[in-house]
Design a protein around this nucleic acid. Structure first.
Length: 543
DNA sequence: TTCACGACGGTTATTTCCCT
DNA sequence: AGGGAAATAACCGTCGTGAA
């Protein structure tokens, strides 16, 4: 669709629409043209391509010319500036100026509530204010929860409970100062209200308050708004990388600003970087150590004559010792110590740390003393060091973003016998910042068709997820028995990536097992599947 | 030795979300 | 509208480090 306007006098105005037939598919009931000037007034065309139902105009195209001089200025209000108005009692109101077509319109329709909210957020971004979700009403239909109503408010809308410190002098005993905040609550009433249309799955706007009781953030400062300051994945990755190079959050922010050519090109402030860095630390703190131990354990189980031990102080992994069969043979032959990694106190691997310094040798020494009688006893010689760097230190980076909360996600499939599809999906659920979904093959996948039930955990791909990032998950999948205690449960782990986006059990149970009513898996034709994410990590392969 | 900067590891006020 | 709870953002004290 093109909307074109003649540049020259006289001020005719043309509204050209291409692909008109498409309009019937677009659920927008009204199309507003640009505002144009003629005869000293401002005008606008309103087109109802699908008919103006409010005026009994169904099945007819309706076209109106609207004078907009006073359009956004309600009766009795006085225009102070182009978008600022004053009510008769002196209260000022601001209305956003946004490009045409961005402003929410009553009755506008959306296919999902997420789209509807996104629309308002986009409008808010352009207008220069923040948003937050407000009241929502949900109904449960079967095992599906459907939002029927949703408010989205201006972020300056009143907050209910906690009195802010500065406005609450009762808190004298509290020594901590009141905290700077980017959001000043001004009792703003601006909002938009969505509701689900009856007998349809669409949503519509049924309420819209355009006037704000505060000014807007100017475009040049918009990048400091709460939403825009969210650190994207590459930024988080950058902070993590800097951390590996012994560069803290404050410095990495400086570097980032320098690389990108200015603060306005960098999302996030120093504080945001600090918090992000802290989150990464928190995650790594108790998790990547476990990952490495797991890896060593797996290796020692699979390799011949492989030895591995750890030294843990105060719940902190201090030392790792490993030795493979070849090293042992070499030791027997030459008497040299061949491989060790004496320190792990920093909880991360760093390129520079593949070269060992003096302090690390000391650590190893104490380790050896503490482990007297171990494979290499006190008599071993430290003169000749030959490194065996385990492969994962060469290719991996153990970094991640969030400690995964202990979550069990439950999924009930109603009327299993009525399912005709080969594969059914659960809704998408989030663990930390990663989205997952389950897929289930009621009649089994390919080779086990008609014999087994297959269940998989899939990573839900998002565009914000770069190609070379992988997500590790250790998880359990459980088929709940509703009659007995004998759930079927299997555990595995997998690295998920763009190429491997699914992992699970093609043969979690046989169909005869499933259908046996004694087992109680299919009570009332409902099947409940649970997935429990036990651990999660994000790694970037490092070449 | 002193000083400034910044990392680290916490803490907590504020914001957001969701429910009734 | 109001309340409870979770998430988040802002802040703090201490300590390590490198430069002056």
């Amino acid at each position: 669709m093109f909307i074109s306007k003649r540049k020259h006098e006289p001020a005719h105005y043309m509204l050209k629409i291409e692909s008109f037939s498409l309009l019937s598919e677009v659920k927008t009931s009204k199309i507003e043209s640009d505002v144009f000037e003629a005869c000293g007034h401002k005008w606008r065309l309103d087109l109802y391509a699908n008919g103006n139902n409010e005026e009994n105009g169904a099945n007819h195209i309706a076209l109106y010319v609207v004078i907009c001089d006073s359009k956004s200025c309600p009766k009795g209000w006085e225009s102070v500036a182009s978008n600022v108005y004053e009510t008769p009692n002196g209260t000022r109101y601001w209305t956003p100026i946004v490009p045409h077509g961005v402003k929410p319109v009553l009755k506008a329709r959306f296919t999902t509530i997420e789209q509807a909210v996104a629309m308002y957020e986009e409008y808010a971004q352009l207008a220069g204010f923040g948003t937050r979700l407000g009241t929502s009403k949900k109904v449960k239909i079967g095992n599906e929860v459907i939002t029927t109503r949703r408010y989205v408010l201006c972020s300056r809308a009143p907050v209910n409970k906690h009195k802010h410190k500065e406005t609450n002098p009762d808190d004298i005993d509290s020594t901590s100062p009141s905290r700077r905040s980017n959001v000043k609550v001004t009792d703003c009433k601006a909002c938009v209200k969505f509701r689900r249309i009856k007998k349809s799955t669409d949503y519509e706007i049924y309420g819209f308050v355009e006037e704000h009781n505060h000014g807007f953030t100017s475009p040049e400062n918009l990048d400091l708004s709460l939403k825009r300051r969210k650190l994207d994945f590459s930024t988080q990755e950058f902070i993590a990388k800097c951390r590996n190079a012994n560069l803290g959050p404050t410095k990495s922010h400086k570097v980032h600003v320098a690389i990108k050519g200015g603060h306005h090109n960098v999302h996030g402030t120093v504080v945001d970087y600090k918090n992000c860095g802290r989150d990464i630390r928190d995650f790594i703190g108790d998790r990547d150590a476990q990952m490495i131990i797991d890896k060593f354990k797996a290796r020692s189980e699979n390799k011949v004559n492989y030895t591995f031990d750890t030294h843990i102080d105060d719940m902190e992994l201090q030392l790792i010792f490993w030795c493979d069969g070849v090293s042992k043979l070499n030791y027997e032959a030459f008497g040299d110590v061949l491989a060790f990694d004496a320190t792990y106190h920093t909880n991360m691997f760093h390129e520079d740390e593949t070269t060992w310094g003096f302090d690390k040798l000391i650590s190893l020494e104490s380790f050896m003393e503490g482990k007297n009688g171990y494979l290499f006893d006190d008599s071993c010689v430290f003169g000749a060091e030959v490194f065996e760097v385990p492969e994962f230190t060469q290719v991996d980076r153990c970094l991640s973003l969030k400690k995964p909360p202990a979550t069990i996600h439950s999924w009930t499939i109603n009327k299993v016998s009525a399912v005709t599809e080969d594969e059914v999906h659960s809704e998408v659920f989030k663990v930390g910042k990663v989205k997952w979904k389950l897929s289930l093959f009621p009649k089994g996948l390919n080779s086990v068709k008609d014999t087994h039930l297959s269940i998989f955990l899939n990573i839900h791909y998002t565009a914000a997820f770069p190609n070379d990032w992988n997500v590790y998950a250790k998880f359990k999948i459980r088929v709940k028995s509703q009659a007995t205690e004998n759930d079927i449960e299997k555990e595995t782990n997998n690295w998920f990536s763009n190429s491997v986006d699914s992992s699970g059990f093609p043969t979690i149970m046989t169909l005869s097992q499933l259908n046996d009513s004694e087992n109680g898996f299919l009570l009332n034709d409902n099947l409940t599947v649970e997935v429990e994410i036990l651990g999660m990590g994000v790694l970037k392969y490092f070449v």
